[in-house]
């Protein structure tokens, strides 16, 4: 554990809580892609199956359970509790175009051809692209509420901090995890365009982020 890793986990947690609180307080999930949130729930589910097989640390177990619970709570709020506010007509990204290549890749490129390793690899690859339905929705509608953009900022920050964590671990422990690093870098690149808009538009005091 290093400061980049801890800060990354904290910003991931902050992102998820921001989104959950926004939906809960406004009693609306307008502008939120339910598809992205289902994909994130699937990411956590397939990655944290090792909760049943190995014990790593109290921190590790608690964070995994919290991420799982919060992601399922978010999906519940979007599709059940506040489903009337869900903009399904704008959440039209074809998820199968992500799932099929990701499933195929996880069978081809993994550390061991075992169910748990393949599912872990699937979760790493899927996480890299899971935000695409949300970014697609923003592009389609041409705008995003500022709270939604804060959520995306912390989610992108988490990925960027994990890269710093990997650089740190490579230098201090000679440790590297190539599948996680390549996917993490790809995932962070998806956020670059958003980061630019976030800093130039949202933080300069407009309520909403509108696209040019």
């Amino acid at each position: 554990m290093n400061v980049f890793r801890l800060a990354g986990d904290v910003s991931h947690l902050v992102a998820i809580i921001i989104l959950l609180l926004k939906i809960w307080r406004s009693k609306s999930c307008a502008g939120i892609s339910g598809k992205s949130q289902v994909l994130f729930a699937l990411v956590f589910t397939t990655r944290y199956l090792d909760l049943f097989t190995v014990f790593i640390s109290v921190y590790n177990t608690v964070m995994k359970v919290v991420f799982l619970a919060l992601s399922y709570a978010t999906v519940y709020l979007i599709y059940m509790r506040f489903r009337n506010s869900y903009n399904s007509e704008n959440d039209t990204f074809r998820v199968e175009f992500l799932l099929v290549p990701v499933i195929g890749l996880s069978f081809l490129e993994n550390y061991a051809f075992t169910p748990l390793e393949i599912l872990w690899t699937f979760s790493i690859f899927l996480e890299a692209v899971a935000i695409m339905p949300q970014l697609f929705m923003i592009t389609k509608t041409g705008e995003a509420e500022s709270i939604t953009t804060h959520y995306l900022f912390f989610l992108g920050l988490y990925r960027a901090l994990y890269i710093a964590n990997w650089v740190w671990r490579y230098h201090t422990e000679s440790f590297y995890d190539l599948i996680a690093i390549v996917s993490g870098v790809v995932q962070t690149i998806f956020f670059c365009d958003f980061f630019y808009l976030y800093f130039t538009r949202v933080l300069r005091g407009r309520g909403k982020m509108t696209l040019p």
Binding site: D50, N60, W120, N165, Y176
Partner: peptide, 10 residues
């Protein structure tokens, strides 16, 4: 090195 088990990162 490559591959890690157990996987400590989240």
């Amino acid at each position: 090195g490559l591959s890690i088990n157990p996987k400590d990162e989240l």
